[in-house]
Simulated assay, not measured.
Amino acid sequence: MVYAFQAPEVVRIVSEICQIEHLIPDENLYAGGISMMGNGHYLHPHLDNSHDKDRNFWRVLNLLFYVTPDWKLENGGNLELWPDGLEGKPITITSKFNRLAVMATHNNSLHSVSPIDFEGERCCVSNYYFSETPLLEDDSFHVTSFRARPGNTMTDALLQVDTALRMNLRKLFKKGIKENPHVYKRKDK
């Protein structure tokens, strides 16, 4: 199922719907794949990193396919988009079973996952598509950059320091200090 999103016909359809030409699916599943979140789990608002694992291509789309039957809004674990930054209210997209959310990724695509308040797990299949060019002309290289939810100033300050340190390390070591372990190596290749 994970690699179904990389089938040429699926990539072509997503390309047509999103009106983005020459999409490149990520066969390494760099930070993609299957995720499971349980009670109390969440993701802070963040920007996904801007490139593929080798920094050759720009990350332009994040595909999130929700596969937990009977998931409801009140369970939490929902995608939150922050188009007006942390000063605005997030747009919530329920992690409803069989829903595919396709999200643009660029310097302003701040998003999060709301805290789960449910005794069970929310599962998601995620894939990224890349391109030779960024979605926005003013996009720039960045590592995954976390922020805290509004009102958590101490956590936000710590997360911004963490991002700054990791960005400076990436300036020194273009591909990181060690090979990223969040890469899948297909056995059939």
Rank of each mutant, 00 (worst) to 15 (best):
I177W: 03
F130C: 00
H111C: 05
E137M: 11
T163H: 12
E74A: 05
H44A: 13
D138I: 14
N108W: 11
I91P: 03
V11N: 00
L172W: 06
P8G: 03
T133D: 09
N98V: 04
Y66W: 00
V125C: 08
S109Q: 09
V125E: 06
V11Y: 00
D139N: 09
F146W: 10
D48F: 04
G176C: 05
F118T: 01
D70L: 03
H22A: 14
I177K: 05
I116N: 00
R122K: 10
G151I: 04
L81T: 04
W58F: 02
R99Q: 04
G33I: 08
A31Q: 15
S145C: 15
K178C: 09
H111R: 05
E74L: 02
A4C: 11
W82I: 03
K175Y: 14
G33F: 07
A31N: 15
M103R: 11
E80W: 00
S114Q: 03
S145A: 14
F65M: 04
I177E: 08
L165F: 13
L110S: 11
H51T: 12
H22Q: 14
P8T: 01
M154R: 08
T105W: 04
N28K: 13
D48G: 02
A7S: 09
R59E: 05
S114D: 01
N108L: 14
F146V: 05
L43I: 10
A164C: 12
G40D: 04
F5R: 07
E27M: 06
K72R: 06
H106Y: 06
S35E: 07
K53H: 15
H51F: 05
A101Q: 03
P90C: 05
Y30I: 07
S15N: 00
L158C: 12
E74H: 06
N75P: 01
R59Y: 01
T94P: 00
T163E: 14
K189C: 05
M36R: 07
T105D: 09
A104N: 10
S126G: 11
L79A: 07
V143K: 08
C18H: 00
G120K: 01
K72G: 02
F130W: 02
L73D: 11
L23I: 10
H51W: 05
Q19Y: 00
D162R: 10
D117K: 08
Y184K: 08
S15H: 00
P45S: 06
L64Y: 08
S126L: 09
S95T: 05
I17S: 00
Y184R: 09
